[in-house]
C-alpha cells in the first residue's frame, strides 16, 4: 500500500530539497551502485562507463555512481529485488527480469516481433508499453529509465543450415532456463535442452547438442564457430537490457539530478546502439573469415509457427499479442 503514495507524490521531496539547499553548503554526495552482468569488454559495459563518468562529472559531485560489471554485485532477479526493497541501486539487465513483475514485458520482447531495432524502439514508446512502466512503478517501486539497451538479435548457430521450421525438426538446441526460450524453440520445431552456457561447447562436440542460439557477439566471443559453422538469421528473440532504479532512490534525487540521469542514460543508450551495430558488422566479417556461412530464413513461416507461444503464458494479459501486433502495424505504417 506504499507504492501508490510514491506515485502520487514523487516530486514533493525533490523540490523541497532543491529549494532548501544553497549553493554554498557542501552537498551531501549520493552514492549509487550500478550493477550489470556485462563484462568489461562488452559494449554495454563500455557505454555504461561513459554514462557513469558523465553523470558524476555533470552533477558536480552531488552524485557518485559506482559501476560494478561482470555480476560481482547482485544482478538478475537478485538485482531487481535490491531495487524493489529500496537500495541505492541501478540495475542494467535483461528486460525479462521486469517480466517477473509485469509479465507483459515478456510478450513485448517475445519471439519474431521485430525486423530491426527501430521497430522495437518505436514499440517501447507506445502507450501500451508506457502503461507497463507506470504499473511496475506504482505496484513495485521499480522506475524504468530505459528499455532500449540492445545487444543484438538472437539467431541459430547449428551444424546444418536452417531456413524454414522443418529444418529445426529433431535438433537439440540449448536454451537458458526460461519458459519463453523453451516454448520458442519448441514452436520453431526444435528440441530445447536447458543447460548452463559454459557447458555447451563440449556438449556440441559430444553430439548432445546440435546447436545453440544467441547473438553474433556470443557466437564470436565464445568461439562456437570452431564447433558449428552455420548461422541462420532467425532473429527469433531480441537481446535487450532495461535500466531500472528504485523509486525510493529516485524520489530522493533533486529534479536536476533526475534530469542528468535520464539524459545521460539516453545518450549511453545511443552510444551502445551505434557501437553494437558497428561491432556486429565487424563480427560478421570475422566469422565469415573463420568459414561461417550466414543464411536468410523464411521469417513469415517462423512467425506463424511461433504464434502459439503467445497463448502459453497464463499470466500474460489476454489479447496482449493482438495489441502488440496492432501497435506494430501502426509503427510499420509510419
Amino acid at each position: 500500500k506504499e507504492a501508490p503514495v510514491a506515485e502520487t507524490t514523487p516530486a514533493t521531496p525533490a523540490t523541497e530539497e532543491t529549494t532548501t539547499e544553497t549553493p554554498a553548503t557542501p552537498v551531501e554526495k549520493k552514492v549509487i551502485t550500478v550493477s550489470t552482468k556485462f563484462v568489461d569488454n562488452e559494449q554495454t559495459a563500455i557505454s555504461l562507463v561513459k554514462v557513469v563518468d558523465a553523470i558524476n562529472e555533470r552533477s558536480g559531485g552531488s552524485l557518485e555512481l559506482q559501476l560494478f560489471t561482470n555480476g560481482v554485485l547482485p544482478i538478475g532477479k537478485d538485482g531487481m529485488e535490491q531495487i524493489v526493497q529500496g537500495s541505492d541501486w541501478i540495475l542494467v539487465d535483461g528486460v525479462n527480469f521486469l517480466g517477473d513483475y509485469v509479465p507483459d514485458y515478456n510478450a513485448v520482447t517475445g519471439p519474431f516481433l521485430y525486423k530491426n531495432f527501430d521497430e522495437y524502439f518505436a514499440m517501447t514508446k507506445t502507450p501500451l508499453v508506457q502503461e507497463m512502466n507506470q504499473k511496475i512503478e506504482a505496484d513495485y517501486g521499480i522506475k524504468v529509465l530505459s528499455l532500449d539497451w540492445v545487444f543484438g538479435f538472437r539467431s541459430m548457430m547449428t551444424k546444418t543450415p536452417i531456413t524454414k521450421p522443418e529444418d529445426m525438426k529433431g535438433l537439440n538446441i540449448r536454451v537458458p532456463t526460461s519458459q519463453l526460450y523453451t516454448y520458442t524453440i519448441e514452436a520453431m520445431g526444435g528440441n530445447p535442452v536447458a543447460m548452463p552456457y559454459p557447458d555447451t561447447y563440449a556438449a556440441i562436440q559430444q553430439g548432445v547438442l546440435d546447436g545453440i542460439e544467441g547473438s553474433i557477439m556470443t557466437y564470436y566471443g565464445t568461439k562456437q564457430y570452431e564447433n558449428v559453422k552455420e548461422y541462420s538469421l532467425t532473429n527469433h528473440l531480441l537481446g535487450v537490457s532495461a535500466v531500472s532504479i528504485s523509486t525510493k532512490l529516485w524520489d530522493k534525487l533533486t529534479e536536476e539530478e533526475q534530469t542528468i540521469l535520464t539524459e545521460e542514460f539516453e545518450k549511453g543508450m545511443q552510444d551502445n546502439l551505434d557501437e553494437t551495430v558497428k561491432a556486429e558488422g565487424e563480427m560478421a566479417e570475422l566469422l565469415k573469415a573463420e568459414g561461417v556461412t550466414f543464411h536468410e530464413v523464411d521469417s513469415d513461416a517462423f512467425q506463424k509457427a511461433a504464434a502459439p507461444v503467445y497463448t502459453k503464458f497464463e499470466n500474460w494479459t489476454p489479447g496482449i499479442y493482438e495489441s502488440i501486433l496492432a501497435e506494430l502495424e501502426k509503427i510499420k505504417a509510419n
Binding site: P74, E81, Q82, Q85, G86, S87, D88
Partner: peptide, 8 residues
Amino acid sequence: NSSMPIQM
C-alpha cells in the same frame, strides 16, 4: 554503508 537495506 547504508546504501542497502539490511535485509538485503
